[in-house]
Every structure is written in structure tokens, then in C-alpha cells.
């Protein structure tokens, strides 16, 4: 699904990622953990194609294609989805309009016809149930006046509608209370399948109680310093990120 090799990224001349390598197979869930400023969000943004990040070395191959060559809209159409840490409020654009525009762009790219109004509505209504969202949210402006939890559920709704192959969740758990976290996690779990992979970027182990990762990577100072299974997250939770710094100190 995704092969990242030796990825180096700079933001305004400041190196942020210093040689990341990561292989993700179809159906796998990888958690990326790390302290603030370790480069977690940079990695998600670079994969989604946000401006302002300069790749100075390394490659990212997604489904056999060079991901870094594609503009962000093409990545989305090819099945890469980023759930934002801070979903943007877009006054004047309704949720349902964005979903139609996005879904049809994606379907067109895949050579599928547009859904007619009836089928679209049926489909959307089914998906809103998945994230326990009231249908009236469909007709509200994208994220405008939504609570933190509603915004994150809206991200998962978009994900469910667009049916991506690679889902990147950037600190989706931040700012969620336990009920919202459960709804979001249930939504994600229901989307897990043998041909869909996930990257969960998170600061805390808490999310991983609900979504069980196949692998956990610890990112520090722009490098993956430790990789393990789900138990690594528990160990981190117990010993804190200080333990990682210590390990790195010893290695240096």
C-alpha cells in the first residue's frame, strides 16, 4: 500500500523529518506516536500534499506510484484521506454540498458515473448513522459552529463516504471526551477492511484502547526511534516520552 523510504522534509529551512522509512501493507493499522514537535503532523501533511513542506530526500510510493508527484486532489482521488487534527470551518458551503463535490470528483477519477440524487441521499444517510450524526448536520455549513467532537465525527463521515484506501488520522483523539472517542473509534473500526490501511497519529495511548494497531512507531526528533506491536504503546504510556529521550541519549 505505502512505502516511505528515507524521507527528509524541511519547513522553512528547518529540517523536521530526518529519514523516515515506513512500510504499510493493505489492511494494516499503524500508530505513530511521539512527543510534541517530533514531526508527527508534518508526516501526515506531507502525505496529504499540503504546501509549505519541502521534501529534500527520500521517496513515497503509494500503490506503486510516486505519491509526492501528485497534487493533493489527485492523492485524494487515488484514495488517500487525511482526517484533520483541526478540521476547517467553511461558512457558506454545506456539508452535503462538499460531500457531493468530493464524491463525484473521486468517482469520476475512478471511471464511475455520478450517483443520482436519490442514491446519494440514501448512501449519505446510512453513513451518518455510522458516526451517530444527526442528519440535520448535513445541511449545515461544513464544521461551522460544530463542537470538537462533532468536527471529528464529520471527518470520519467524509472518510466513510469517500471510501479511501489509505486513511491518515491526525490526532483525531485530541480534544475528545470518552463518548465521542468511542463513537469515532467505532466508526473507524467499522471501516477496517483487508484492502484499507490506516495511519493513526496520536500523542496518547488512549485511542489505541479502541483501535488496535498492528504496529506502533515512536517518532522523536524527526526519526522513528522504536517500532513494536501494540504493547509498545502501553509501555510508552507507563514510562512516558522521557524514556525515549533517554534511549536516544544512550544511543548517541
Amino acid at each position: 500500500m505505502l512505502k516511505i523510504e528515507n524521507l527528509h522534509v524541511r519547513v522553512e529551512d528547518k529540517p523536521i523529518l530526518k529519514g523516515i522509512s515506513l512500510h504499510i501493507k493493505p489492511g494494516e493499522v499503524h500508530a505513530i506516536m511521539g512527543p510534541n514537535g517530533s514531526g508527527k503532523s508534518t508526516l501526515s501533511h506531507v502525505l496529504a500534499g499540503r504546501d509549505g513542506y519541502e521534501v529534500t530526500a527520500g521517496t513515497v510510493i503509494y500503490k506503486g506510484k510516486n505519491l509526492l508527484d501528485m497534487p493533493p486532489e489527485e492523492r485524494a482521488r487515488e484514495g488517500v484521506f487525511l482526517a484533520f487534527q483541526y478540521p476547517v470551518e467553511i461558512p457558506g458551503v454545506s456539508n452535503v454540498y462538499l460531500l457531493k463535490a468530493a464524491l463525484n470528483a473521486v468517482r469520476k477519477h475512478r471511471g464511475l458515473p455520478e450517483l443520482d440524487a436519490f442514491d446519494f441521499l440514501q448512501m449519505i444517510k446510512a453513513k451518518t448513522k455510522l458516526v451517530e450524526m444527526d442528519e440535520k448536520f448535513l445541511y449545515r455549513a461544513v464544521n461551522e459552529g460544530f463542537s470538537g467532537g462533532e468536527k471529528k465525527r464529520n471527518e470520519i463521515l467524509q472518510m466513510a463516504v469517500l471510501e479511501p484506501s489509505l486513511c491518515i488520522l491526525d490526532e483525531t483523539d485530541s480534544g475528545l471526551d470518552i463518548d465521542a472517542l468511542k463513537i469515532v473509534s467505532d466508526g473507524v473500526n467499522s471501516l477496517r477492511s483487508a484492502d484499507r490501511s490506516f495511519i493513526l497519529v496520536t500523542h496518547y495511548q488512549r485511542l489505541l484502547d479502541y483501535i488496535k494497531p498492528d504496529q506502533v512507531h515512536v517518532l522523536a526528533q524527526g526519526r522513528i526511534v522504536k517500532t513494536g506491536d501494540a504493547s509498545l504503546a502501553l509501555e510508552l504510556e507507563e514510562r512516558g516520552y522521557g524514556w525515549i529521550d533517554q534511549t536516544m541519549g544512550e544511543a548517541a
Partner: peptide, 20 residues
């Protein structure tokens, strides 16, 4: 970027925001 990351092309994204 938010709209583009959902598969909408850049020109349409700008127009959507202007129209909105």
C-alpha cells in the same frame, strides 16, 4: 487545502469558497 484534500480541484475549491 481542506477542500482539495477531499478530491476537489483547486480552481473549483476557490470558486466554491468565493461563491460561499
Amino acid at each position: 487545502f481542506y477542500l482539495v484534500s477531499r478530491g476537489v480541484d483547486r480552481e473549483t475549491a476557490k470558486n466554491m469558497l468565493t461563491f460561499a
